[in-house]
């Protein structure tokens, strides 16, 4: 237990020591999106009746920041340790593969929630955001952060160089998060793209999370919750399998 707890603490400190880059910077990015999109679209777009576009946008931006930062935490920690070589200090320890998994996962979730939470706090200055189902919000935050944390571990194990990691981020994480309905309701898309969106697990995370605030969304939140939970479990099993086998870590 102490071993796993220590790794968790180290992973938390690792981002907290550079919180200017790891928390402040992504919060500012989210706020820039908020400023620009709400300014341009506020008077033109209304997605749900009685909900302003700015209000609609905020949970989406929170979730997007949460997901990207959960991913960034585990993936950057692993790729840095691999490139620098200090991954050996972890590999030399008696920590079991599942302990490494849980420690990295928990730290990733926390980083995501800290960044998402900061976006929410700052947005309170702009707008009064309702909170219809707090537990749903929390459930999506934890599962979403966990799913991307696991994906970050997978990417961190797989990538051997920083540019491979950048490719993973640019060609998988970014498109999935931008095409998930952060900035629009997928109902405004042509039917074909609506179908495509339903294949994107990020869509369920964003929609369910938003439902938690407004009590309304594109689809039933229990469906979203189930989709997110299943995706999270599937990725976790894959991650655990990779860690257990020593894939790319123990030759």
């Amino acid at each position: 237990m102490i071993g796993m707890w220590t790794l968790f603490k180290k992973e938390i400190l690792r981002f907290w020591k550079v919180s200017f880059q790891t928390v402040a910077a992504p919060v500012i990015t989210a706020l820039l999106y908020l400023l620009i999109f709400s300014h341009v679209l506020e008077s033109h777009v209304q997605v749900y009746p009685g909900i302003s576009y700015t209000a609609f946008l905020i949970p989406g931006l929170m979730m997007m920041s949460l997901l990207q930062n959960s991913f960034a935490n585990s993936s950057s920690s692993l790729i840095q340790a691999k490139v620098m070589g200090n991954i050996v200090f972890l590999l030399l320890t008696p920590l079991a593969y599942w302990e490494v998994f849980l420690a990295f996962l928990a730290a990733a979730i926390i980083r995501g929630i800290v960044v998402g939470g900061c976006v929410w706090l700052v947005s309170l200055f702009y707008i009064d955001l309702p909170v219809a189902h707090p537990f749903l919000i929390l459930a999506f935050a934890v599962l979403g952060g966990g799913m991307l944390g696991a994906l970050g571990i997978i990417a961190g194990i797989w990538a051997e160089k920083f540019d491979q990691m950048a490719a993973f981020q640019n060609f998988i994480i970014m498109p999935l998060s931008f095409l998930s309905g952060v900035f629009y309701s997928i109902h405004s898309l042509p039917p074909f793209w609506q179908k495509v969106s339903h294949l994107n697990p990020f869509f369920y995370m964003i929609d369910g999370f938003r439902y938690g605030f407004f009590g309304t969304g594109d689809i039933d939140p229990t469906v979203s919750l189930a989709m997110v939970a299943v995706s999270f479990l599937a990725l976790s099993v894959l991650t655990l399998q990779m860690l257990k086998s020593g894939y790319k870590l123990r030759g």
């Binding site: 237990m1 102490i2 071993g3 790794l7 180290k10 400190l13 620098m84 200090n86 050996v88 972890l90």
Partner: peptide, 27 residues
């Protein structure tokens, strides 16, 4: 084990690093 290469974790100071390392071993 003292590895052949001079590897290190750039985020922490010496004492922090040693305490973490002992912590991984349950101490």
């Amino acid at each position: 084990v003292v590895p052949q290469e001079l590897v290190f974790d750039p985020f922490f100071n010496v004492r922090e690093m040693l305490r973490f390392q002992a912590g991984y071993f349950g101490l």
